[in-house]
Amino acid sequence: MSAVLTLLRRELKLAARAGGGGGMAVAFFLIAVSIVPLGLGPDLNLLGRIAPGFLWVALLLSALLTLDRLFQADQEDGSLDLLMLAPLSLEVTVFIKALAHWLTTGLPLILAAPFLGLMLNLPENSILPLVVAMLVGSPALSLLGAVGAALTVAIRRGGLLISLLVLPLYVPTLIFGVSAVSNVLISSPGSSGQASLLLLGAVSLVALVVGPLGGAAALRANLR
């Protein structure tokens, strides 16, 4: 247990001291959100309608942009070899790395999302559903992303490849995440926001299994 905490503390410290922590991700999120009205025009009705979807897409993209260094930085300075030799099982290591990734990119973005939502004229009654849906759904982004990061650990400039590998796997999270919010806006018959939220949780739970297992297998495959 102390090994787990030590690893987590190391990851968070590294993120805070060398990577700018969550600040960089939030800045990206802010810029991504502010170029949308520039592209689509400042029509508040239109912006309010697309706000939940766009906030989710921006969350996906900013998670993706930070993924390629998840294992690569450790692989370059050799600490990944030490982590693999350590008594901690590799699956747990991958889980901790994914958790740290979520804490440093996912969580700050979720905290920033309500304010950016206001900028996009997101109706006030859907701010809480948005935050809840993001809290439930975004762990899947880091967990599945860890598989992509582990697969491309030995590839220089693997960033584009990661997007190609990982984005298809993000589709369920995006769909359920957006529908959990939009169903509050337009209550469509036969489906409710709660069902989407439950399915979103199911996707995250599947990712909780697939992510560490797949990530560890991919690391073993790449660094024999």
Partner: peptide, 12 residues
């Protein structure tokens, strides 16, 4: 190595 990595991806 490519074979192993690709196999993991195919299964995921």
């Amino acid at each position: 190595r490519a074979a192993r990595a690709a196999a993991v991806l195919a299964l995921v």
